[in-house]
Design a binder for these strands. Structure first.
Lengths: 258, 258
DNA sequence: TCGGGTCTTTCCGTATTACGGAAACGGTCG
DNA sequence: CGACCGTTTCCGTAATACGGAAAGACCCGA
């Protein structure tokens, strides 16, 4: 009746509902595990009432949880289904015994990673008792171009991914980081022929890592293991047989377990 | 034009889109980590074309992945965000060192679990080298009424949850499983006063477990740890101080790490 | 106690996005 | 080659999602 009260058509919209719901997941991050509704909306780039509505559905199912203060957290139910991810928990569980052996024998840092697009995701990390501190987090991402595991994964990645990375400016972490695409390209070829990769102080000036590929039953590279040691404590040549044989053991275990 | 060709209104629909997408997640399970589109639809109880459409969106984001054969799997991206779940990976990571100590010292099975509704979810499990085989899976569910961790979680659960479980038929696993609500109710009171729970051959005839509560900074019970040993190898009284002190250490660690 | 600020929840008229049967497509096996 | 089983595409209809605005909660500091 009152034309001024008439709501004016309301309808920018943006895309499929599911994608908006997934944007909500993206709002969470290592530094942001607990968010207010307002933060959630801001970080997801969605209107407040939209997030309010969608988040309520996610909470009802258990994909999100609200704590005593009403803040939103990633829910246990989501964690449960994620535990079924073959490249996540699945891989982690099957590889773990071998990673532990590696850790026991060397007392150094052990890492397990897979490629996701043009980055890597750490699937497991065992911190050696008296090892160089490494700042990796399980579930965390990192560039493919610098670490041992990254070089292995990149060396066996599809052409497009290599191209993409070689044609963009390569991030530098230390003076030793290789940033020349030419040099990196040749290094990838070496990784393929040698069956292992060495990252010599490319991430931090005091660490060196040696990594080897893990393959599935069709011989495709699906993951990589590495040992990360203090620079100078071990030579790459001393470590590579160890890492390679562990990688092969894991590959075999994966092929065996259906 | 041709009335016979006119599509007949098509529109049962069922509910919010997001909930349908979440039903797709529910289709996955320990025995079903890799599913065809048809299986996915059948197990989710949704029409094929609906699942096809929604799954495509989930794949695009990375919540699901398709393998070489086109089968659907839980995606790494989902696992990444799930790694931010405070009651999942968050708890697991902080508790792990203490669980490992427990494992090292006893060489027995160690379990960490939280309550989700009227069941428990295992957040971590360390298999002792020469310990009784236990069939628990990280991310797996179990009844609250039988295990050590379950009794602890149930003893400190809200009234409604206790009522619900005590009023339903309690599942029996062995001749020693307590199924009498009266007895169980008294046992829960003991658990609260003693600060630990004992499950004496209630799940399998050869195993006994002793569990203690993990508390948050407000003293609320949020998880439980347990040692699972072969029946007869240890007395509960020998184990309870160990388990309780570990539980307290974990509680303290949680309170400290903001 | 009050006023201002911030965050959360509810409301509701509109139309965009989702729906899903059916038919075409594709691969595999005997 | 034909039958079978799973996947993908199509598209007319309408149910579900949209989101600005206003009302509620809550928390401080004065």
């Amino acid at each position: 009746m009152d034309p001024a009260r008439r709501r004016p058509s309301v309808r920018p919209a943006t895309g499929p509902v599911v994608s908006r719901a997934l944007q909500i997941f993206e709002a969470f991050g290592p530094q942001h595990t607990s968010l207010t509704l307002t933060d959630l909306a801001r970080r997801a780039g969605l209107p407040l009432s939209t997030v309010h509505r969608l988040a309520a559905e996610l909470v009802a199912w258990g994909a999100l949880e609200r704590d005593a203060a009403g803040r939103y957290n990633v829910g246990l139910r989501l964690w449960e289904v994620a535990a079924l991810a073959p490249r996540g928990q699945g891989l982690r569980e099957r590889a773990l015994p071998y990673l532990e052996d590696l850790s026991q024998v060397t007392q150094e840092n052990v890492q397990l990673a897979v490629r996701e697009g043009s980055e890597l995701v750490f699937v497991e990390r065992i911190a050696g008792s008296r090892a160089v501190p490494v700042h990796t987090r399980v579930g965390g991402r990192f560039a493919l171009s610098a670490t041992g595991v990254g070089l292995v994964l990149l060396a066996h990645a599809p052409r497009e991914v290599q191209q993409e990375i070689l044609s963009t400016t390569i991030e530098r972490f230390t003076p030793h980081t290789i940033t020349d695409p030419q040099v990196l390209f040749r290094m990838l070829a070496d990784v393929r022929t040698n069956g292992f990769a060495v990252s010599d102080r490319q991430v931090t000036v005091d660490a060196l890592s040696v990594a080897a590929p893990i393959r599935d039953r069709h011989n495709a590279v699906i993951a990589a293991v590495s040992l990360v040691v203090r620079y100078g404590s071990f030579s790459p040549h001393a470590l590579s047989p160890l890492v390679r044989s562990s990688a092969r053991a894991i590959s075999r275990a994966l092929a065996a377990s259906d």
